[in-house]
Amino acid sequence: MSLCRSKPFAAMILPVCFGLASVCLTEAVPACSTVAFVDTQRPMLAYNFDFEATGAGFLTVNSAGSRRQSISEDRPASWTAEYDNLTINQVGPGMPAAGMNTAGLVVTLMWNKDAVFGGAAGLPSVSELEFIQRLLDLSGSVEEAVEHAKGVRIDGLVPIHYFLFDQAGAAAVLTPGKSGLVVHQGIDLPVPALTNTSYREALLHLAQFRGYGGASPVPQHQSRGDQNSLDRFAIAANAAQHSKGRTNAAEAFKFLNELANSETRWQIVFDPKDQQIRLRIEGSSLEHRLDLSTLVFACQVPALAVDLRQLTSEFEAKDLTPIQPELLSESLTEVLSSMRQTAHLGHAEIAGSIATGLIFSSSCTAN
């Protein structure tokens, strides 16, 4: 089953296929944060995923050779994955919030009210989350990902921007704009961090603090209200600077705790050189270590996955099983129930159709 084959179904699922869709019409603003530690010997990326209502989601295995087609109705993009990757998905297969591939590319997302989806109408299109999956499927580095990003138009509803990182310590911020993606990388990315305001605005805010051109001390704690995202950016920038690029997973989680809030659901540390993802789930003291080098990546439908809230301290690769429509539908029902103020959402009866569509939206081809 392809989500693209039914226009009514695609029109219904598109607003749902982004787990943070409730920010469109409500005042609930997730406060996700990303900070990179760019030491070339041991680069790491630390990420907080924040969502008001629930921590429901899945860890999903995505294999090279998977053939995907976008749910977008206008010139849907299609591609065949070149890299195996592991993603963290709130919505379902092919719709990650973050992930890392076996080449060491990492992509995360954050809400940004200033993001505007535009660009050349003639390009093939993808949804906000499919964009992440496509980059992980096709790109072996930040440089390659930036080039692949230019080849599609994001047919998005929810304003977000993206942070990219790789095992060489290269980083980039991609922000959707009216004319297409605005890219910050190299000398245009002096601070390897991102929160929920535009990167340029965040840098201007940072310039008032000591060590960054100003005289005021860097905030030690987050403020409430409009300044929250800017304060988190300053805290993240300070963490990256004072680590001198070098850190370990324990220190990275410590920095994430400084950026956390009551809505932080997942805390993730990516180690692209060692091919490891360390994950902490809200309400649990366990730290789950996911080693991509121990996984057997073989394309199959349904894809292998595990419910994030079913992870145990003894988690092993064998615990990954084909994701079932009933299990995904149950999780989606919980996610959708938090979106009752958003058009077309909050209706549990649509979860089953969406779950089935997402699971069977990819197929396998010979490598």
Rank of each mutant, 00 (worst) to 15 (best):
N228I: 08
V218Q: 01
R200H: 13
L194M: 15
G211Q: 07
L194E: 06
G211T: 13
Q222R: 09
A207V: 03
Q222V: 08
Q208P: 07
Y199A: 00
R224K: 15
G213K: 07
V191K: 00
V191G: 01
D226S: 08
Q208A: 15
Y199S: 03
Q220H: 10
A207G: 14
D231F: 07
L194K: 01
T195C: 13
H221L: 12
Q208H: 12
D226C: 07
L203I: 09
S198R: 10
Y212C: 10
L230G: 03
P190Q: 14
G214F: 05
R232I: 08
G225W: 12
G214W: 02
T197Q: 11
F209M: 08
S223I: 03
Q220I: 11
S216I: 10
P192V: 11
R200Q: 15
A193S: 11
V218Y: 05
N228T: 15
A207C: 07
T197S: 10
R224W: 12
R210G: 03
R200I: 11
Q222W: 02
P219C: 10
P219H: 02
D231W: 06
G213D: 05
Q227W: 04
V218C: 09
A202T: 07
Q208F: 05
V191A: 05
R232A: 08
R232G: 05
L203K: 06
S216E: 10
H205K: 07
A215E: 13
A215K: 05
G211I: 14
L189Q: 01
S216C: 05
P192W: 02
Q208G: 09
L189G: 00
V218K: 06
L230P: 00
V191P: 00
S198I: 07
R200P: 01
G225M: 10
R210L: 10
L230D: 00
Q222A: 12
L204N: 13
V191T: 06
A202P: 00
T195S: 14
Q227K: 14
P217T: 09
D226Q: 14
N228S: 15
T197A: 02
H205S: 08
G214Q: 03
F209R: 00
A207N: 13
A193E: 05
P192G: 09
E201R: 11
P219L: 09
D226W: 06
Q227G: 14
V191N: 02
L194V: 14
N228W: 08
R224V: 12
P190S: 11
